[in-house]
């Protein structure tokens, strides 16, 4: 029970906010619950297969190949590959986090994982189509170009930072995954 409370203290806190909101501002509470429910349905459909895919990646992706394609010595080709991988029409960004973690674990460089995540969220092809339609081609193209440059800089900087100051707590939590 104590363990459960500790593990679920954040969601329980959020639930408390909802209860208070239902008392003091039922209108907002109703709208919020509707949104939460919608997103819950979406996630309930999408996340189980995503986590199974992640499991399959952990088991099957050959470490040496990933290291070669996306690792520290993959260079420009690795960066380009990560960018392209992210632009594929797949789904919301929270889908990408578990996949990114698997890639990291299999030897992809931090730079490439940052580029992959950034491109997944910001440079998706179907999303660009919608953007061109509503905001115009110049807007979409400029944003695409500037974002790509920003992602590369972010990736290089984060790799430098996390190599010098590794996240020990996180590394420890991932020790017993299959290689």
């Amino acid at each position: 029970m104590k363990k459960f409370l500790k593990q679920f203290k954040l969601p329980l806190g959020v639930a408390l906010v909802y209860i208070l909101l239902f008392v003091f501002s039922p209108d907002i509470a109703r709208r919020s619950s509707e949104v939460t429910w919608e997103y819950f349905l979406e996630m309930a459909f999408i996340l189980p297969p995503v986590f199974i895919l992640m499991g399959l990646m952990e088991v099957w992706l050959p470490k040496d190949k990933i290291q070669k394609w996306l690792g520290n010595d993959s260079g420009l080709r690795g960066g380009f590959f990560s960018l392209a991988l992210g632009t594929l029409p797949t789904g919301p960004v929270y889908v990408a986090f578990p996949l990114a973690a698997s890639l990291l674990h299999k030897g992809a460089s931090i730079t490439n994982v940052v580029i992959f995540l950034g491109s997944w969220a910001a440079l998706k092809i179907p999303q660009l189509m919608v953007e061109i339609k509503f905001l115009g081609l110049p807007f979409a193209l400029t944003r695409f170009a500037l974002t790509t440059i920003a992602l590369i800089i972010m990736g290089l900087f984060m790799k430098a930072m996390l190599t010098r100051f590794p996240d020990k707590e996180w590394l420890k939590s991932r020790e017993n995954l299959p290689d």
Binding site: L10, L21, S32, V35, F51, M54, V59
Partner: peptide, 25 residues
Amino acid sequence: AFKVAKKSLLKTAPALLTMLGIVGL
């Protein structure tokens, strides 16, 4: 693979629920 998936999903569940609640709010 299924075992890994189940374990990660359960471990991520509190964070997911929090995220859902906050998105709604």
